[in-house]
Amino acid sequence: MAPVQTQSTDELERAFQDAVDADGRIEPRDWMPEGYRRTLVRQIAQHAHSEIIGMQPEGNWITRAPSLRRKCILVAKVQDEAGHGLYLYSAAETLGVDREELLDLLHTGRQKYSTIFNYPTTSWADVAAIGWLVDGAAIMNQVPLTRCSYGPYARAMVRVCKEESFHQRQGFEAMSVLAQGTPAQRRMAQDALDRWWWPSLMMFGPSDTDSPNSARSMAWGIKRFSNDELRQRFVDATVPQAEHLGLTVPDPDLRFDEATGHYAFGEIDWTEFATVMRGDGPCNRERLAHRVGAHEDGAWVREAAAAYAAKQAGRGAREAA
């Protein structure tokens, strides 16, 4: 493949940008700027880590689910999230990194995952609220990624988004059963909305004015809409759903603005966001310790699988000889 190098970096860069601007897909073998590759590795890895860490808060309710139907739905959902992690690590691997390396970055705190998973799930309604709000916010973020310029990521997102929208509907349905249920269930539902609303809005990331990398990601076709645009879409879609459930969104400044046709909402507590980001949210330590613990507890199993595979390869070679 050496002759390709006759093109100068400038020319390659121009061809790359033209392809992106024309809404073309960049594939693993195509030339890409190093910054693009690095940005994608980081973003896809953090997305994969979020799927894997995200199994914990809901997985926590599997053994206590209040009906067998809900238990099965929840098991299937948590299983889907593990699957999303797998697709995403595979997509990252097309960029020349491997899963072990990325997991190590997660385990040592050098790569992050979504701040939303650093909040505790203290009641059953949290499972419903996560499906409704967190998967709902994830969809807003991820649907545009199905058109992202990097082919393997875009294709992974198509499959992930289908399942996330299923999770969102199941979550909303579970929430509506609680909202129409006994007084204790209604209280549970409102309490969950109270605790998950603001962290869900934070899932869209910092406000556009404080989002330094956004412009570059937009130019590269990795990002299609700004954080604030996506957040607004989420609020516009979700507030009427909360009203339909008869639940109160915990924002005294929330009101429908006739002039803009959008909901205006109160100021996000960016100090809280920064605190959780920095590692000092309610569950950062717990989530990471659990993840690292599972990985370390499983080391002997992975070593055994590798040792067995090596023995088998040796046996095969001897038989062939």
Partner: peptide
Amino acid sequence: AEWAARSPQIEEDVALLNLALDQLGAAR
């Protein structure tokens, strides 16, 4: 299902939860 999010590798989370779902489905 107690293995959710604590299995030795992600593939096993998928596999063990799949086994759990099969048993729970039959149980229902």
